[in-house]
Design a protein around this nucleic acid. Structure first.
Lengths: 340, 340
DNA sequence: CTCTAGATTTACAACGTTGGAAATGCTCGC
DNA sequence: GCGAGCATTTCCAACGTTGTAAATCTAGAG
């Protein structure tokens, strides 16, 4: 059906290899030959068979991206950025969803699909320190999110503790004294939730404010509904609250809604800050202050590092030890924490 | 590096083909042989080389999904659904973004990546009737969204006119008489915007309400900011408005925000309805009434139809003519249109 | 006019898999 | 004990590409 090198070669009256050389831009091809071949390529509409190329050279030009779910806006925006970065580098992206389930997360690491990708960018949510050995795989792997310490692969993270600390410090600077944290995971020690909770505690400590367990809202997931429920539960305790740190924007949206339902004005009565800088933060009422985690930088770094690893492996030789890349963040002040 | 059929065969003391037969579940393999081979597979950690398989059989088990951008929640949720459906069917999904740019949309149809996918699910946004010929490609293609009439490929759509009509009828039933439409595209005749505008007009006509060009808000894109700007422009005209039909939820979110900024209460002063049933509609204040376009059904249908086409083509024989599949919708009433 | 170095082109053998056909082994009936 | 007939296994030749090495060509030097 589709034209092959053979068809083009026949039409151009040269060998298959010469066509291949032209296609791949090999230097030593006579200009006249190149022209003939290019004409034949245009006439036949030839496009390289990527499966064959992949089989021959051992690389596919495809990278995998595994993440919890695209329905979570943070991951959707991250995926978009990864795909754009990859495209700029001439590779395509195969996306897999894990649903944040442990089995599925283990699964993507060993999936037959890995045979089709040159490497994987993986954002685990369920895996913890116990699973760190599973990350010692024989293909290039970059993990995202500050979840597992000392993995055997490259690791791109933002500084969750510092980001959270800065967010809470921002609330403190705005005058808040009774600051709730929404989004903690019970018993977690390694994930984003634990790290952001740590940042929260550190900021309180720095400000000389007490840490009060009653001000911590625990949730199962980081969906909007979880934020709303946790906020309602906090309000139901009847304690005083004048600030809310949502561990991500989605939780903060839910919290915002619950606060408004309860008749609390934001930012007049309660100031709220989130984490992620979703596009949406600009359009809620009030617009949401947040921590911009540098999604673009994360995506760019992850793709760059992964492609470097792939190139390194193609070149042979000893691989350099895995590295940890920390990206910057930035507090974005919007209406939800603005002083009156 | 990775084990091949040859390695397994050597270890098991059988021929390569026998191992292949075991791997692919061929019937006539003696039970004892199968056991030996399976043991060898386990020991070597063999996984089929998908590039080689793909080259040999001419199919890769990968489908493409091309859409405007994942940062748009509708498409993110759609992509998530497509990936889940594909996974259930044992195929993986390669995602490409077009940014809703015409060149990029033409590009994905001819991209070398098509050599790597067995077919494509494509949601065009910029292409119009003029480009319909480009959809006559030599691989299985399913397009989404009611954009192009009579394409040479399968087409999964929801009934935009009916959905919009029902949404506006819902506003009318709630007592609205001066209903604005936010999200029209100037001069467009084929896209979702044009169809939803038509539904809007039909609903007005049915209700015996006049169509007033002053009530139509034109936008460039369907981002939140466009909805907010269009709404502000409408309000600036100083005309009376008691209902707003947002052509998608994102536009409606923006409109909601602009209304509230202008001091209009929703739903008391103005009722608002959107289109798409994004997760977010449940969590805005007020929560947003909307049209549920059956995203899941669209995704399921698209994947099913595409896989059927792929199977059909693999079986050889005359392809059946392209079909159009229309999926259902449903009005979801939330606070933004609730009567007092 | 011949020789040589470099430029250009080609032949060949993989990459790992699977379809088809051929080869071998086995069971059963006589 | 011998075929027949089916079950099981193997052999061979692709799929389309690229790396290597060898073949051929060209131009300039002698």
């Amino acid at each position: 059906m589709a034209a092959t090198l053979r068809d083009v070669a026949e039409l151009a009256g040269v060998s298959i290899k010469t066509v291949s050389n032209v296609v791949r831009g090999y230097q030593h091809v006579r200009e006249s030959t190149r022209a003939t071949v290019l004409a034949a390529i245009a006439e036949t509409g030839y496009q390289p068979n990527l499966s064959a190329r992949s089989l021959r050279i051992g690389r596919s030009g495809v990278i995998g991206l595994a993440l919890p779910e695209l329905a979570l806006p943070y991951f959707a925006e991250l995926a978009g950025a990864v795909i754009d970065e990859a495209k700029a580098a001439g590779v395509t992206v195969l996306v897999e969803q894990t649903g944040a389930e442990l089995d599925a997360e283990h699964g993507v690491l060993r999936s037959p699909t890995r045979q089709l990708t040159d490497g994987l960018v993986f954002s685990p949510l369920a895996m913890g320190q116990d699973d760190v050995d599973r990350l010692d795989v024989d293909y290039p792997l970059v993990i995202l999110g500050e979840r597992i310490f000392d993995p055997a692969c490259d690791h791109v993270v933002m500084d969750n503790v510092e980001g959270a600390r800065a967010a809470v410090a921002h609330l403190v600077a705005a005058g808040c004294r009774r600051i709730a944290a929404v989004g903690a995971h019970l018993g977690e020690e390694q994930g984003s939730a634990a790290l952001r909770l740590r940042g929260y505690r550190e900021a309180l400590e720095e400000a000389g404010l007490p840490y009060d367990e009653d001000l911590v809202g625990y949730v199962g997931m980081w969906h909007r509904v979880d934020g709303a429920e946790a906020m309602r539960a906090l309000l139901a305790r009847g304690i005083e609250i004048d600030g809310v740190f949502g561990m991500n924007d989605t939780l903060a949206f839910g919290a915002l809604r619950a606060l408004q339902d309860a008749g609390r004005r934001v930012p007049d009565d309660v100031r709220v800050i989130g984490f992620d800088d979703l596009d949406e933060t600009r359009y809620t009422a009030p617009s949401l202050s947040t921590v911009d985690p540098g999604r673009l930088e994360i995506a760019r770094t992850a793709v760059r590092v992964l492609l470097e690893r792939i190139a390194e492996r193609a070149a042979g030789g000893e691989p350099s030890p895995p590295q940890r890349y920390t990206t910057g963040f930035r507090i974005v002040e919007r209406e939800s924490t603005r002083a009156r």
